[in-house]
Computed example of a mutant assay.
Amino acid sequence: MSTDATFEDGREAPLRLKALDADDLTVIAALVQDAVFPATEMTWDRKNRRFALLLNRFRWEDADNARLRKRDFERVQSVLAIEDVTRVQSQGVDKSDTDMVYALLSVTFEAGEDGTGRVTLTLAGDGAIALEVEALEVLLRDVTRPYVAPSAKAPSHPE
């Protein structure tokens, strides 16, 4: 008799995801919710039309497992890259304040004409970054091993 595989049977691997439409983006948005990053870790490469953030991402995909096993919650450093960016606008973001740490609340896409649109990164404290894109292509890639979240707690939001 065979048994079903369990999560513990799998080998944990770093995330590597790509969003090419709004439905795909909701998955990435859920995974980067509550990520934090210093002002120094965001960059717009105009020549290559890429906007990127190096995030300290809360591992939402592991949160239930951590609760069940009564172990610490984890974070992992990840790169969130938005491709085909033609324009960047921000509100409440001061990249020159090198001590500032931002918290990412949501990532959304508003479609325009012929595949164009706007990716909006909403930050805690009324900050936002709007990225005009020629086509939606968002990449999320873990670049370090998970580490214990400094707070040892899961992020929470008042209801």
Rank of each mutant, 00 (worst) to 15 (best):
residue 63 A to D: 10
residue 143 V to G: 00
residue 118 R to E: 08
residue 115 G to M: 07
residue 81 A to R: 02
residue 121 L to Q: 01
residue 52 A to N: 01
residue 12 E to N: 07
residue 90 S to F: 05
residue 42 M to K: 02
residue 50 R to T: 12
residue 113 E to R: 12
residue 140 L to C: 01
residue 116 T to V: 05
residue 39 A to S: 15
residue 157 H to T: 13
residue 30 A to V: 04
residue 82 I to D: 01
residue 81 A to M: 06
residue 102 Y to S: 02
residue 76 V to Q: 08
residue 121 L to E: 02
residue 112 G to H: 09
residue 54 L to W: 05
residue 144 T to V: 02
residue 127 G to Y: 05
residue 31 L to N: 01
residue 150 P to D: 06
residue 69 R to L: 11
residue 58 F to D: 00
residue 130 A to C: 10
residue 111 A to C: 06
residue 142 D to F: 00
residue 152 A to M: 12
residue 5 A to V: 12
residue 82 I to W: 02
residue 103 A to I: 11
residue 32 V to I: 11
residue 42 M to S: 07
residue 107 V to D: 00
residue 56 N to R: 10
residue 12 E to F: 05
residue 66 A to Y: 03
residue 90 S to V: 04
residue 58 F to A: 02
residue 101 V to H: 08
residue 39 A to H: 06
residue 30 A to M: 12
residue 61 E to M: 02
residue 109 F to M: 04
residue 88 V to G: 02
residue 15 L to P: 01
residue 152 A to E: 15
residue 82 I to A: 05
residue 118 R to T: 15
residue 145 R to D: 14
residue 98 T to Y: 09
residue 85 V to S: 05
residue 76 V to D: 00
residue 96 S to N: 15
residue 7 F to R: 14
residue 89 Q to I: 07
residue 108 T to L: 10
residue 137 E to D: 09
residue 153 K to M: 12
residue 16 R to T: 03
